[in-house]
């Protein structure tokens, strides 16, 4: 049937759509309530930041000018041997 057709059919379609949306909203409300409860037991932002800082500073990073070791020789492979001007032969 075409959209905007018979009155009853249109009514039914409207009812189903609203019911589906309502169900979705009710579920979302439940999820939000769960999150709110969880948040009551959640630490402040500062509690997570020490761990973040330790993580970012404890791993050797070849792109940093100052980094923790161990250094790996293969980091510098990009500057060894023939480079850039080699053209593809395929």
């Amino acid at each position: 049937m075409q959209a905007g057709g018979g009155g009853d059919a249109g009514d039914t379609r409207g009812r189903h759509r609203i019911q589906a949306e309502l169900k979705k909203l009710e579920q979302e409300a439940r999820f939000l309530e769960e999150e709110l409860e969880e948040l009551d037991k959640t630490d402040k932002v500062s509690a997570a930041l020490q761990e973040l800082m330790v993580t970012a500073e404890s791993k050797a990073d070849p792109l940093l000018p100052v980094t923790t070791g161990p250094a790996c020789q293969s980091w510098d492979r990009w500057f060894e041997g023939p480079q850039d001007l080699r053209r593809c032969k395929c």
Partner: peptide, 21 residues
């Protein structure tokens, strides 16, 4: 109800933002 819960969540989260990185 959903909008009100979202707002409560936003406010509650804001209170936990005592600093940033």
């Amino acid at each position: 109800s959903v909008n009100s819960l979202r707002e409560r969540l936003r406010q509650r989260r804001q209170m936990l933002l005592d600093t940033d990185v």
